[in-house]
Each structure stands twice: as C-alpha cells, then as structure tokens.
Amino acid sequence: METVNIIHHMNEFRNILSYATNIGFFFGAGTSCAFGLPDIMSLTVESKASLSSSQQILFDKIETSLKDLGGKAKVSIEDILNYVRQIREITQGRPDYDFSGISGDEAVELDKAICKAVFDVIKEKEAKADVSDIRRFMAWYDSANRGFVKEIYTTNYDMLLEMAMEANYTSYFDGFTGSYEPFFSPESIEVFPNDNDSTSKWLRLWKIHGSLNWMKKESSTISSERIVRIGKIDTPINELMIYPSKEKYNLSRKEPFIAYFDRMKQYLQRGELVFICTGYSFLDQHINDIIFNAMRQNKRLYVMVLCYLDDQVDTMSSYATAHMNLCVMGPTRMIANGIEREWIYDESTDADVGYKLYWDEMKKEFILGDFRKLIEFLIENSGRKSMIEEIANEK
C-alpha cells in the first residue's frame, strides 16, 4: 500500500480550515461517546433492562425475528424501534389487530416505553457529563468571523450541544419557534438568512433523529396534535419524539425529519463547503445518499470523515475511491483522491512542532477521530485560543 506523510497532509488540513469560506459539521454517536454517553449497543442493553418483564418478552421476540429475517448478529435499539413502529402502523395501534404476535396497542405501549427508557439512560449519563470541551468547540465555531451560516447536523438525541451553547450564551436556532410550548416550524428552515437578517450569525443545530426534549402534544380545544420542544425536563409527560428509524409512521413524525433532510440537501449543494463528519459510522443509508448525491452534484463540496477506528475506513472504502471530493482519515490509514494510503510520520523533510495534536507517537496513530482531540486541534490552530478559552470558562 502507498504511504503518505501525515505532516504534509495535516498542513493541507490546516490550510483548508484557514481559507475555507464555509465549514459545516455532522456529528454521529461517537461525539457523545467521547463524553461518557453510551454507544448504540450499550444503549440497547441498558434500555432493555429498564423495561417491564412483559415488555422485555416482546423485546426478545422482536430481536429474534430481526435476527432470523435479516441475518443480523447484533440488533440495536434502533432496529427494535423500526420494527415496533412498522407493527404500530400496520395495526393502526388497535388491540384487536396484531402482527408477528404483537397487538397494535402492545406496539404503541412498547414504543413509548422504549423511548422513555432511552430518555432515562441518556439523561442519567448526561447529568454526569463534563461539557467544558464542547463549550470550547462551540466558542471556536461561533467566533469564526466569516460570512457563512454555521450549521451542525447530528443524529444524537442527547442535549450536550444545547447545554454547551447555552453555557456560552451562544445564540442558536433548531427549527422550533414560540415561547410557551415552542412548536416545529418547517417554513422557518426553508430559507437561508441573508446578511441583513439579525439571526444570520446564530448557529444552526439540526437534530435529524429527534431529541430528548421533543414531545408529541395531543390535540386539544385550542390546538391540533403537534410536536413541541420542552426546555430542561426530568420526566417526560407526553410521548417522546425520537426517531432512530428511516420509516416514520405518521405525518407528525415525518414533518421534522423531512424538513431537516431537505435543509441538509440544500446546504450541501449551495456552493463551496467543507463538511466535517465525525463520530458517524455511515450506517444510515438515507443520510449517506444525501451526502454522496451532493458530492456528485456539487464539485465545490469537500467532505472530510474523521474515523475513530480503522474499521470505519474499511466501511468507507468503496465510497471514498469513487469520490474525489471525499477524504477519509483513520488511525493508521486514509483515503484521498480515490487512493488508500498508510500514514507515516517523517519529519526529515518538514518538521512540525504541533504534531502531538494529531499524532500518537507511541501507537503511531492519527488521533483526530477522537472528538476531544479534534477540539484541541481546532482551537490550537485557530489563532484565537485566549478568546475561546475566555468564552468557554465564563460562568
């Protein structure tokens, strides 16, 4: 396999960050794992354990069916919810209809119970998380005084990003509007703000799989059924709106999902953009289709994928060799311009005093697939470190 000197490549990375006119981010579960939240399989085990015994029996039944039907060795909470919601749709939630031995009302209650279990598991871990490094990242991103709309897309349900931004007094928008019970407003995310818009400098946070503080508000005498965003909550009183599935079973679930993905398509195709993906394993085909279609249509889009493990590089190999505007970087190898190469560190021709920010000398590995290490690298190379630290340390 060919080799590439990581010093030369990271010099190019620094130049890209310095001169890019537009930088966006996509955060997968790995970014939250860096701060103590569970990965998908750990979340599956812990969520199942908090279900009632009868619900665990249904859970096991679905897990067995999925393994038999799909040949999966591991079934995640997302797979379970997909299946439950398909049953819920087919049976219309009725007790007198069943599918695969699970009645409609059992599917409804299991859906709610799983979402509540996910809430409890993540909320417990969230309370223990130290978001000081995320505050530093947000301060870095928000202080980049460039004329572009700063956007973060994430599949994570937790609220670490919101906690960090609000601790920094950073203004942001997530598609919800209102004060009493903020409701999702698809019209508000269809248009990109211009320079005269007072919100143009706000960060945009698009939680494309939902959030722990999204609830379904039942219809009443004064309003129809809608999705609302609650503030800080300890116990949900309505059905949680988190969607790890690609198949949504009614209009109220589809609306935020479709609106966010339409926004993502527009964003990736608007012109020059460096789009940095971290903590994401590219296992959601719907998301992948949007990213790769945009790369084919917009030659000024450059996607950089930072991988925590080399297994993720293997997953990306077929994509990366087919797209010249995709760069994949893992611990021991990378793919750029369609060619896979192994990292080497050779300072004989070009020394780099800051190499420890991206290179583990003992393991001989690239380390920016770790979100915490990426944050440190971005700040150290920003030229604004003292200002960023001041913002992030403000009480």
Rank of each mutant, 00 (worst) to 15 (best):
R136A: 07
K116A: 15
V149P: 11
E126Q: 12
T155A: 08
R146Y: 05
C115A: 14
S100M: 14
S143L: 05
Y141F: 14
V131Y: 03
T170E: 06
P95S: 15
V118M: 13
D133A: 12
M138D: 01
Y153E: 00
N145Q: 07
T154V: 07
E124N: 05
R146P: 02
A107S: 15
F173E: 15
K125H: 10
D130W: 06
P95K: 15
F148W: 13
C115D: 09
I134E: 02
E109M: 13
T170I: 15
A113W: 07
T155K: 10
I152N: 04
D105G: 03
E151F: 00
K116F: 09
D133P: 00
L110Q: 05
G104Q: 05
E109V: 03
I114N: 05
T154S: 12
D142I: 08
V108F: 11
Y172W: 14
T154F: 11
S132M: 02
L161G: 03
A164Y: 08
D105K: 07
R135E: 12
A129L: 01
L161F: 07
F173T: 13
A117V: 04
C115N: 10
T170G: 05
L110S: 12
A127C: 01
N156G: 01
F119Y: 08
I134A: 07
E109T: 11
F99C: 11
A127V: 02
A144V: 09
E151N: 09
V108N: 10
D130V: 08
T170Y: 04
D142Y: 09
L110E: 05
G147E: 04
C115E: 13
S100H: 14
M163P: 00
S100N: 14
F148Y: 15
T154L: 08
D142C: 04
F148T: 07
D158K: 04
D98P: 03
F99E: 12
Y172H: 06
F119G: 07
K128V: 04
Y172P: 06
Y97S: 13
Y141N: 07
Y172C: 08
S103A: 12
R136E: 10
R94F: 12
L160W: 02
G101Y: 08
D133W: 03
E151P: 03
V131Q: 02
K150A: 01
K116N: 09
F99W: 09
Y153I: 00
V131C: 09
N145C: 02
A167D: 12
E106R: 06
A113C: 11
K112T: 13
T170K: 04
F173L: 13
A129G: 01
M159F: 03
I134G: 07
K128T: 10
Y141S: 02
A167K: 12
